[in-house]
Design a binder for these strands. Structure first.
Length: 444
RNA sequence: GCCGCGGUAGUAUAGCCUGGCCUAGUAUGCGGGCCUGUCAAGCCCGUGACCCGGGUUCAAAUCCCGGCCGCGGCGCCA
């Protein structure tokens, strides 16, 4: 017999729970969250993307529907037509009394526990990512990510930035390092872009003045840590006609604030429910300290630092704690990094050339963004390439841009997954990436 | 890349140090039974595992070696 249920009739569970009419018939569809079979009574919790509700099937319905109800398995996809009734005992005070049930897809016994993410190790969960994401907690991570990306685009658009799409297949490594993936491009060697850095500078110099890109970046570093991916999403921006790198920090602060506020604004209740360690708001003004001030703070706290060197990951974590305590902020800009810790295109501090006009943004002790003012003077830039031991010949097309009118400019790159991770308080960045790639993992 | 830790049913774990009492325990899942108000239902019965290869030993889940795989720390970075 043909099904009497059509999905056109379908209503979302959240809507039904909020404003469905008691006594009326409705069709809901989704995944079977749990089944509890009693003697002459079956309780089913049905889940769609809006929420969950209880469906009850009693033995006195049609023979067919009763048999179907008894044999439901968790995570099967079903549709139910039933009458909405009040029920003191049911979750949310109402439930659907089933009349008809259609099983579109019967699920086999599950290979992982999807009700509690903590009951299965992350590696196993990732092997079964499509099931792992059925868990509303895990789904929330990607709702937050999507909202952050949307908010970033909106912020960029309303601040005069043009979205660009640069090539991820490149003929030379951006910064001369060895940390790139090699690919075969017909008969030539090529690489996966580790950053759109040089191209976004091109966007500025080409006359767009302000550009941004949200896209993949590839790093061939064999990191075995909870905060590195070999492929991640970079929120990149570059802006011309700036007075100083302070202008770039203002922009980064604007985007990051927009991202966090949008995500919390839209998903506050879900975030509070599933991520008790989440950061729900950023300070009015993100503190800015120079790295030399950071060295002092760290030394005062008994942490060993090397002046003139980059901060170690331990120092960054400690600094995060100190700033939280001293400034009451989970987030801080650290500025004026030493020249030896920065790439060739960074502008040096005019009066103190061993330091640079650059910054990192540390969120709960983890670097989530890096940026600064770029060197736009041809001769100086050329010299800096040599200073870093790189061959200017490999940067000919790039250097040429600075001989035909390049405005003072600067920019930054923000790690999207890291923002998500630190906002929600995740312990592993792989959780914040739909399909994480690390030195070992290439599937799914 | 360097260093450390680990691999036991579908899942998560106990046992390993101090070899035999392991016929490998527990929870959950799965199969079956009872149950008309449960809510990750309850109770009863059942099901299912020592990563691979070699070695030591009377005896190996347990000790040793090699391999494969996983996790984490560091450097570096987003």
């Amino acid at each position: 017999m043909a099904s009497l249920i059509t999905l056109k009739e379908r209503v979302y569970i959240a809507e039904l729970m909020e404003k469905g009419e008691i006594g009326k018939e409705y069709v809901v569809a989704g995944w079977v969250d749990t089944v509890r079979v009693h003697g002459k009574l079956v309780f089913v919790v049905l889940r769609d993307r809006s929420g969950k509700m209880q469906v009850v099937a009693k033995k006195n319905i049609s023979e067919d529907a009763w048999r179907t109800a008894k044999s439901l398995t968790p995570e099967s996809v079903v549709a139910v037509r039933g009458v909405l009734v009040e029920s003191k005992a049911a979750l949310g005070g109402r439930e659907l009394q089933a009349r008809e049930i259609v099983v579109y897809s019967k699920a086999e016994p599950l290979p992982i526990d999807i009700h509690d993410h903590a009951k299965t190790v992350l590696a196993k969960r990732l092997d079964w990512r499509f099931l792992d994401l059925r868990n509303p907690r895990n789904q929330t991570i990607f709702l937050v990510e999507a909202e952050m990306a949307r908010a970033a685009r909106e912020w960029f658009a309303s601040n005069g930035f043009v979205e660009i799409f640069t090539s991820k297949i490149v003929g030379a490594a951006t910064e001369g390092g060895a940390e790139v993936f090699s690919i075969v491009y017909f008969d030539k060697p090529a690489f996966l872009a580790q950053s759109p850095q040089l191209y976004k500078q091109m966007g500025v110099i080409a006359g767009f003045e302000r550009v941004y890109e949200i896209g993949p970046a590839f790093r061939a570093e064999p990191h075995h840590t909870t905060r590195h991916l070999t492929e991640y999403t970079s929120v990149d921006l570059e802006m011309g006609f700036i007075d100083s790198y302070e202008d770039v920090m203002d922009a980064v602060e604007g985007v990051v604030r927009a991202m966090v506020e949008a995500a919390v604004g839209r998903y506050r209740s879900r975030i509070e429910e599933y991520f008790p360690g989440a950061v729900l708001e950023l300070p009015k003004k993100i503190p800015r300290i120079t790295i030399r001030e950071a060295y002092k703070l760290l030394e005062a706290a008994g942490v060993k630092v090397e002046w003139g060197e980059d901060l170690s990951s331990e120092a960054e974590r400690k600094l995060g704690e100190i700033v939280e305590r001293e400034y009451g902020s989970p987030i801080v800009f650290v500025t004026e990094y030493p020249w030896n810790a920065r790439p060739f295109y960074t502008m040096k501090k005019p009066d103190e050339p061993e330091w640079t006009l650059s910054f990192d943004l540390l969120f709960r002790g983890l670097e989530i963004a890096t940026g600064g003012q770029r060197e736009h003077r041809y001769e100086v830039l050329r010299r800096q390439i040599e200073e870093k031991g790189l061959n200017p010949k490999n940067f000919e097309w790039y250097l040429a841009m600075f001989r035909y009118g390049a405005p003072p400019h600067g920019g930054a790159g923000i790690g999207l997954e890291r923002v998500v991770m630190q906002t929600l308080g995740l312990s592993n960045i792989r959780e914040a990436r739909l399909l994480p790639r690390d030195p070992e993992r290439l599937t799914p």
